[in-house]
């Protein structure tokens, strides 16, 4: 195979590293907290690209090609996050540090929103995170998707009032308040575990091994 078209982008890389260093240094003069978050953001983007992690693939591939590798990896991510969040929340409440979790109100618009989001991410070839990653990778298609995302988000945000008025809304349900922490965690991890087994079975079945 002719490898002459594979050239090192090292110079660009060095330049970019200097740029990032400058950015981080400047930001650290303003706020350590924002600097940390920027660094975390960079880490997210880096890891997502390097591991080819795709949440759309996790939900779509069992349906379209019978593969559940990413689905199972996503379930692992969910499990780690559930445990980590519980720990952090508990730790923060012990020290009286205010911390908010994503316990969102529930309404018809939650389901409609989910449906639209699911359809949209398959058509766009990425979810909101995926779009940002692919813009970073240089995909023109996701530049266009981003444009749509921006417009759609404004339309969505501004129509929220109408959805609430027409269909109403219930406050979010924080499961530990109802079941207690330990039963909640056990329940959630059990469900994830069942889904994981199901995902593994599904792939084997699609591959004809089961």
């Amino acid at each position: 195979m002719n490898n002459s078209s594979l050239h090192s982008q090292r110079n660009l890389n060095i330049g970019f590293i200097l740029f990032l260093t400058l950015l981080i240094t400047l930001l650290s003069q303003i706020s350590i907290r924002l600097t940390l978050l920027m660094a975390l953001g960079i880490s997210f983007g880096f890891v997502l690209q390097k591991s080819r992690f795709c949440l759309v693939s996790a939900l779509r591939d069992p349906i379209l090609i019978g593969m559940t590798q990413l689905t199972r990896a996503f379930l692992l991510l969910l499990g780690i996050s559930i445990l980590g969040f519980a720990l952090v929340f508990w730790g923060a409440s012990q020290r009286n540090i205010p911390l908010s979790l994503n316990v969102f109100p529930l309404g018809v618009h939650t389901v409609v929103g989910g449906l639209l989001f699911g359809i949209g991410m398959v058509l766009a070839g990425g979810c909101s995170t995926g779009i940002l990653v692919r813009i970073g990778e240089g995909f023109a298609m996701q530049f266009v998707a981003f444009f749509g995302l921006v417009i759609g988000s404004v339309l969505g945000e501004r129509s929220l009032k109408n959805w609430r008025n027409v269909f109403g809304e219930w406050p979010g349900v924080f499961l530990p308040d109802i079941l207690g922490w330990i039963p909640t965690l056990l329940l959630e991890l059990s469900v994830l575990s069942v889904l994981w087994q199901l995902a593994r079975w599904w792939q084997k079945k699609q591959l004809g091994e089961w």
């Binding site: 490898n3 078209s5 594979l6 050239h7 591939d61 593969m67 590798q69 990778e137 240089g138 792939q203």
Partner: peptide
Amino acid sequence: SRGIVVWAKANRYIIKEEEVANG
């Protein structure tokens, strides 16, 4: 590319992947 490699390996096909130009 990654998806095809993963799928091929799961199906026990022989797969060769090579980066022939940048990306």
